[in-house]
Simulated scan of single mutants.
Amino acid sequence: MNHSPALPPVTVLGLGPMGQALAATFLGAGHPTTVWNRTAGKAADLVARGAVLAGTAAEAVAASPLVVVCVLDYDAVHAVLDPAAGELAGRTLVNLTADTPGRARATAAWAAGLGAGYLDGAIMVPTTVVGGPSALVLYSGPESVYEAHRPTLACLGGTAVHLGADPGRAAAHDVALLDVFWTAMSGIVHAFALASAEDISAADLVPYAKGIGALLPDIMDDFARRIDRGEYAGDGSDLLSAATGMEHIIHTARGHGLDTGVLTAAHAVARRAIDAGRGSDSFALLAETIARTPA
């Protein structure tokens, strides 16, 4: 790999599937790339393509003004970076590890105490999309730090969005969006289990399930307007009818001996709003009901 001397070097710490995709993308864009991983063998393909394998995390950090870390969680981030903390002063740490907004803010404060710039980020696509036009990466932290490294980060492809100075904002978006994803995934597998119990194959159910999915974008827009305005009139579809439909599903599933924990919990939230006299309101009201749930 012939690197342009005009392109700044980058270090990537952590070579799981996403870390490897990030390092390969920086390499492909022509950035001199140093890599480190606790299991050195994972770097073999990248080294063959021109990456430099550092012997320690501290050596890897010292090699570049921009250090990107992508590991399992923030415990792993600190396990990697605490021994290399002395090398972080004057560098920028871009943490693309998924974790909580609170831990993102705490890690930003830790980095600032070491004299390092800090950006927190959330990669909202699978590894196969990194570097391509469909990639989406969310960043938060000081705008000046983001702007200083935006040209380098842009090679990760697609759309990069800076969400503001609060270092926890990218992680907040990440957990909220993954809440949508994993709750929906739970509903999908439960629906397939329920259909199977009624001798309906997954393949037979899919076309109709996709039709349900196609309704969701307009529902999201409607709910967002209601929630932001605090206006929840039922307008033809209310919590009472929703709760009744949920009860039918729970009754059928229990009749087949299926686990109903997820939907039972959702139904309990709806019932709490109904018992408070809000049965004629929109399902969107439950965003407020959830916010009032005792810890």
Rank of each mutant, 00 (worst) to 15 (best):
164 G>Q: 12
175 V>W: 02
220 M>P: 00
54 A>I: 02
178 L>F: 15
149 H>E: 06
9 P>N: 03
202 A>D: 04
216 L>M: 15
51 A>K: 12
80 V>F: 10
181 F>Y: 15
2 N>F: 08
138 L>W: 04
10 V>F: 10
33 T>R: 07
202 A>G: 05
90 G>Q: 09
105 R>T: 11
211 G>Q: 12
256 H>W: 06
76 A>V: 08
103 R>V: 00
114 L>E: 04
74 Y>W: 09
198 E>T: 00
105 R>A: 13
21 A>R: 00
174 D>Y: 10
123 I>C: 00
61 V>E: 09
275 D>F: 02
186 S>Y: 03
31 H>W: 00
237 S>V: 06
7 L>F: 01
42 K>F: 05
68 V>N: 07
60 A>W: 00
171 A>S: 14
276 A>I: 02
231 E>T: 10
63 A>C: 09
171 A>T: 06
82 D>E: 15
52 V>G: 12
94 V>K: 11
294 P>M: 12
46 L>E: 06
235 D>H: 12
180 V>P: 00
126 P>W: 01
101 P>S: 04
292 R>N: 09
226 R>M: 11
167 P>W: 15
95 N>Q: 08
223 F>C: 07
157 G>D: 02
162 H>S: 07
4 S>P: 02
105 R>L: 06
175 V>M: 11
114 L>M: 05
141 G>Y: 15
291 A>K: 14
190 H>F: 10
199 D>P: 00
133 P>F: 01
258 L>I: 03
25 T>M: 00
86 G>L: 11
241 S>N: 05
117 G>R: 09
64 S>Y: 14
143 E>I: 05
152 T>R: 13
68 V>Y: 01
103 R>N: 03
215 L>W: 04
79 A>Q: 15
295 A>G: 07
272 R>Y: 00
130 V>G: 08
